[in-house]
């Protein structure tokens, strides 16, 4: 009896946890997907209504604003974080004194909540009392820096704060990658007379391909999900000028109570993430299983 129980115990432990996962992840996704095919408004409605919510979504100007912002934000956020992270990692990899302390400084924003980051940058970028005033006090009284309240520029303030928070993360991943490049290859390159520039561009960077991929995936994932930072920094405004899919979904779900449209936008977000993550996870798992 005891032996039998012992044999089944691992499965008995895993199955409730697996069941919880099935219910709260897959069950909930299924529910949201189904709701996106109904006319649900304030209350869920379970009559199948086809693509009506998707048609509505893609006829909502605000959705296009959110998508444009996501596009602009992701490209700048991923691009600047990757370039800056790579650059900082290379600087730190030159046998620098106090490397540990410097690394700690580069990375500490990652420990903060996006709400804290947003609150801080909202104050720093405050037109009137913030950076603008600092430059005025230096004598440049014509300087104007009103991005935070300028509908055309506000999305770039989200990029500024986002890069400040996340570029250290990219740095840490690149630094780990640099440290794992095979010493022998570098020695061989040195013997062949390759200078620092050639060593980096021809040998080290191509060796970091998998790290670039990881950094890209993580940053892309962060941008698609970005919600807190926008809420704290601009609250989606002015108007809905800095709306992103995540804030759009929240607003339609909890403020406007248009469940169907909210569900449709959530499904679009999921589809975007799946398109990026699934190929990545698939290749990762295949390699670890070998």
């Amino acid at each position: 009896m005891g032996r039998l129980l012992e044999r089944w115990l691992p499965k008995l432990v895993v199955s409730p946890l697996f069941a919880v996962s099935l219910f709260f992840v897959y069950g909930f996704i299924a529910w949201t997907v189904y709701i996106s095919f109904t006319r649900s408004g304030i209350l869920p409605n379970y009559d199948f209504a086809g693509l009506i919510q998707y048609v509505r979504l893609w006829h909502t100007p605000r959705w296009y604003v959110a998508l444009t912002n996501l596009f602009v934000f992701s490209i700048l956020f991923i691009g600047v974080c990757t370039a800056l992270g790579m650059f900082l990692a290379i600087l730190l990899d030159q046998r620098v004194r106090a490397e540990g302390a410097i690394r700690t400084i580069f990375l500490y924003p990652m420990a903060l909540s996006f709400i804290v980051t947003g609150t801080a940058w909202k104050w720093i970028l405050n037109p009137g009392l913030g950076l603008e005033k600092v430059v005025h006090d230096l004598g440049f009284t014509d300087f104007r820096f009103d991005w935070l309240v300028n509908p055309h520029m506000a999305i770039y303030t989200v990029v500024i704060a986002g890069v400040w928070q996340s570029s250290g993360y990219a740095m840490a991943l690149f630094l780990a990658g640099l440290r794992s490049v095979d010493d022998d290859i570098l020695k061989a390159a040195a013997i062949d007379g390759a200078g620092p520039w050639r060593t980096y561009t021809r040998i080290i960077l191509p060796n970091l391909r998998p790290v670039f991929l990881s950094v890209f995936i993580i940053l892309a994932h962060l941008s698609i999900k970005s919600f807190d930072l926008v809420i704290a920094l601009t609250n989606g405004g002015p108007g809905y000028a800095t709306d992103m899919p995540a804030t759009f979904m929240y607003s339609f779900a909890f403020q406007r109570s248009e469940l169907g449209t909210a569900a449709a936008s959530a499904v679009m977000m999921l589809a975007t993430i799946l398109a990026i993550i699934v190929p990545y996870l698939y290749s990762e798992l295949r390699e670890t299983n070998r």
Binding site: S21, I224, A246, M249, A253, L281
Partner: peptide, 15 residues
């Protein structure tokens, strides 16, 4: 299957 839960955008489970 469980790992997948770490990567979903939580918007899809909010409602």
């Amino acid at each position: 299957l469980m790992l997948f839960g770490a990567f979903i955008p939580f918007q899809v489970v909010l409602l």
